[in-house]
Design a protein around this nucleic acid. Structure first.
Lengths: 265, 265
DNA sequence: AAATAACGAGAGCAGCGCTCTCCCATTCAG
DNA sequence: CTGAATGGGAGAGCGCTGCTCTCGTTATTT
């Protein structure tokens, strides 16, 4: 009966009662429910450890099962497949990165837009260097044959860009986001349309040129972090990597039109 | 006798004759030599196809062996391990990207520095979109447990940055590389040392600030390409990706101090 | 108390990288 | 031209993987 796989989906997290309209919140009444929640958490925790230690491609359900002290087929009661576990770890990592970024940005005064941008960039880099395998899962080559389910990952996956957009829009509304002396290149029609849609979707005030420059700062930030984490700088070339990153961040802030960190309001 | 694995290394490519000082060039005298060269080429070709179709993590020596019409153990006569094949494919991909970049840059007049930069960026993006799996092998998350042997990959692996450095240094020597109106951030001591070493190693004239900005343009270029190839832009947001990339390239050229493409000399 | 659902164990399948042994054909030395 | 050395393919095998299925036990629901 292969349908018990489908029936099993009922168990995962959202447990609908027999009445049907039971609250979706976790119900930990019975010992079995508690045991299940504990096991699910253990699997994610062990998976996170394996991921951090050996990388995504080496993540093995059998190894997790061994660490859990259980035979391999048993973990399939909790996780549909290896991909499902990867998705859980993806969300987990996105949220941890998002938390780190939010904390770093929140620690800087709201009106210090340059400082907030620097904090955001530094938080991304720090987390990436601390968790290279998990960073690679988020921003490296997609795991072959695996596509993250958008409906579950877009939320946590957009926290960094959301924070960045918040900084840029806040700076613009405060009259502190200024195009650099040079004019940007002319905006092509299709790109202008995309930017208008983004502006509408997020309720932004930032004009096209500055929005596009913000997108460049975004991709460039992750480009710099990825080069460092993935070892694209040769072993001999750049040794003062924190200084290099700091320089890049400062230039990128200027590119985006942000004032320098700590600039007087 | 595990030593025949070491003895086998004698066969790969550089075949030293019994006299010892035989020329290192390929000697295809006997039919067996020709068959070996053919098989080696076939393995790389099939590996490239599998890599392009299914990605690096799914590259399987057994599958290559099947396509080759041979039992799996036979390919170990030609390739030491799966890693060895990955290294061959890495070099292969680096060189193909380098060729594409060199061709694109070479098609633009030498004094059109902005145009050469745009051609370089466009060539990287075009190749990456054409060969996403191979691009991922070069610039994505490192394959876990696999570290590319530097002595074999640094040469082909540095062709793009070498070309970029050539453009920047050429522009500077021609007096066409100018810092933008704004001054860059102060250069920290360690970073200045790195830059001095790079300048000496490549025989460059470019000063610190412009060299660091060139490094930023470099990482940012690959950041933009990686975001596009790895699907970091959501499905709905940026649709006019070529225009977005063109905008980014133009801003990056400006950041690096390069004149606009086609600018009068 | 009976029925139902959850769950762990175990066997099993196909695939993987890699090793080793065996055997045949080619190549080379005398 | 003959005998030794070498190259290379076939096959079996080891331990690993993801995943499926069955079976017996235990907890929960009715």
């Amino acid at each position: 009966m292969p349908e018990d796989r489908i029936a099993g989906a009922t168990d995962s997290g959202v447990a609908a009662g027999p009445a049907g309209a039971a609250p979706a919140a976790v119900r930990l009444r019975t010992p079995r429910d508690r045991a299940r929640a504990q096991t699910e958490a253990d699997i994610v925790r062990l998976g996170r450890e394996h991921l951090a230690l050996h990388g995504a491609a080496a993540l093995s359900l059998r190894a997790v099962a061994r660490d859990l002290g259980v035979v391999s087929s048993a973990v399939y009661r909790y996780v549909e497949s290896r991909e499902e576990l990867l998705t859980l770890l993806l969300i987990d990592a996105y949220n941890e990165l998002g938390d780190a970024v939010d904390a770093a940005v929140g620690a800087v005064p709201e009106e210090d837009f340059g400082g907030r941008f620097a904090a955001l960039g530094g938080a991304v880099r720090d987390w990436a260097l601390r968790e290279p395998s998990r960073y690679a899962l988020l921003f490296g080559s997609p795991v072959p044959g695996y596509r993250a389910p958008a409906e579950r990952t877009t939320g946590p996956g957009t926290r960094v860009i959301t924070a960045l957009i918040g900084i840029l829009d806040g700076a613009f509304r405060a009259g502190r986001l200024a195009a650099t002396g040079r004019r940007g290149p002319a905006m092509a029609a299709g790109l202008a349309g995309d930017l208008a849609k983004i502006r509408a979707e997020f309720g932004l005030a930032v004009p096209d040129d500055l929005l596009a420059r913000g997108a460049l700062a975004w991709t460039s930030l992750f480009g710099a972090v990825s080069f460092e984490v993935f070892g694209q700088y040769g072993p001999g070339t750049f040794t003062a990597r924190e200084e290099l990153f700091g320089h890049h961040l400062a230039v990128l802030a200027d590119v985006a039109g942000l004032p320098a960190a700590g600039a007087a309001r």
